[in-house]
Design a protein around this nucleic acid. Sequence first.
DNA 1: CACCCCACCTGCGTGC
DNA 2: TGCACGCAGGTGGGGT
Length: 273
Amino acid sequence: VPELPEVEVIRRGLAPKLVGETIVGVSQGGQRLRRQSEPDELAALIGQTVVDLSRRGKYLLVHLDQGQTLLVHLGMTGRLFYQTDACPALPHVHLVFRLHSGHKLVYQDVRRFGQVLVYPAGVQPPALAQVGLEPWSRRLTAARLRQQTTRLKRPVKNFLLDGRIIAGIGNIYASEALFATRLHPQTPVGDIGLETWTQLIRAIRRILSQAIAAGGTTIANFQDCEGQSGLFAVQLKVYGRAGEPCPGCGTPLVRLVMAGRSTFFCPRCQPEK
DNA sequence: CACCCCACCTGCGTGC
DNA sequence: TGCACGCAGGTGGGGT
């Protein structure tokens, strides 16, 4: 499900429902996520009240009133539902937090690549230390990226996917941002000039903002059991559209595998230089 | 360092 | 119908 916009949409949807809720029970499925706190650590959250929800990159942070933090990463297929008992049971549910209001916060994850980890008061989750600049950070500048990448050969697509540099860009929005900038995905980052970095940063911000405003690319299942058919409101221009005509020039779009991930681009609008 | 590869999982669509 | 295969929006550990 989730790149930065989807996680942000989930955060905004859940925050008004969860803040003020007290956890009264935690049940854990038999199969564990790739990274998941021990059962007793999760059970220790019982009695705590949610004071805030924040986001860092693709990580969602649930802040509790005694200072603990619940770090949630949805991986590829993780979903969070805010449900009542009236909702039918879902498959692949690995964690259920029962709440004082009678609602439940349900974590579902088919592939179990997600993470749910508890951290004590005052401890910063180590994973966050690796997370790069937020896309809207004032410290994210063309000059900084230019300086950081001089003489590097790494393809710009792979650079965008590296969350240690800019946080939250995933495989979909990397292709979309490069198309918007008319930049070939294999362009070595060291070859990119200041002006192009400026345009790329702008494109990233615009595309992510639009995606958030539209409710994410896919199903944002924070609501209830109806599993709200996701607004496919974001119109992707190139992602997943190999063979279809480029929306700019009509040339068939191309799929290319880079670092093991599908990459989509227009060979005419995004020429190799 | 910089960068790549693969592991970690399940499900679904496609083509034989 | 069955089966093998490729593919899927994530990270992170280990190798070159």
